[in-house]
Amino acid sequence: MGNAFELAKNGGKHSGFYKQYVNKSDDEIRKGIQSIEKQIAEHQDKIKNPEAHIPNFRDLDPRQQEALINKKWPSDIQRQLEQKEILEGILRSR
């Protein structure tokens, strides 16, 4: 991380997300940051306690369980962290 804002601003990864927020009010951007922080916390909890989020988690194929815990949810968190960084960068650049 560290350059998600610049990358998005210059048309790279997450540029659509950047364009979606760049002209929104500071309040809307702050709400977006709060929403992303909630999503990150939820995904971290999914990794720690998957049964609370997927009632039949133990019935899933072990490969599917492993993919959710070690690939899907961590990659969701990574994307959310990048999006949060972009929103914070928009606020800082004003």
Rank of each mutant, 00 (worst) to 15 (best):
N49D: 15
I36V: 06
D27V: 07
K48P: 06
A41E: 13
K48S: 14
K48L: 15
K24I: 03
I40N: 12
S35M: 00
P50C: 11
V22Q: 08
G32V: 01
Q39P: 02
D27S: 07
N49Q: 14
H43L: 12
Q34W: 00
K31R: 04
E51C: 13
N49E: 14
A41G: 07
N23T: 11
E28D: 09
E28M: 10
R30E: 12
S25C: 05
Q34D: 06
A41C: 02
K46S: 10
D45H: 14
Q39Y: 08
A52M: 14
K46A: 08
A52D: 15
E28C: 05
R30D: 08
E37N: 11
I47S: 10
N23F: 11
E51L: 15
N23M: 10
G32T: 04
P50G: 11
E28R: 02
S25M: 08
E37P: 01
N49K: 14
K48G: 08
E37H: 01
Q44H: 11
V22I: 13
D45C: 08
D27N: 03
I29R: 04
G32H: 03
D26A: 02
E37K: 12
K48C: 09
E37V: 04
N49L: 10
H43I: 07
D26E: 08
A41V: 05
N23Q: 09
E42S: 06
E51Q: 15
E28H: 01
E51R: 15
Q44M: 13
Q44W: 10
E28V: 05
V22C: 08
D45N: 13
D45F: 13
E42I: 07
I33M: 00
A41T: 05
K31S: 06
K31C: 04
S35T: 00
I47G: 10
Q39N: 09
K38W: 02
A41S: 11
N23E: 09
Q39L: 11
R30M: 09
Q39T: 06
P50L: 09
I47R: 13
H43F: 13
Q34L: 00
N49A: 11
V22K: 06
I47A: 11
K31A: 07
K46L: 09
Q34I: 00
A52S: 15
Q34E: 04
E37F: 01
P50M: 09
H43V: 05
A41P: 02
I29M: 04
K48F: 14
S25R: 08
I36L: 07
K24N: 06
S25E: 01
D27C: 05
K38V: 05
D45P: 08
D45I: 07
G32K: 09
K48M: 13
I29D: 04
I36F: 02
S25T: 12
Q44S: 14
I29V: 07
K38H: 03
N23Y: 12
Q39W: 05
P50Y: 12
I29L: 02
K48V: 10
A52F: 13
N23I: 07
K48Y: 13
K38P: 01
S35C: 00
H43K: 13
D26M: 01
I33S: 03
K38G: 06
D26L: 01
E42V: 06
K46G: 06
S35L: 00
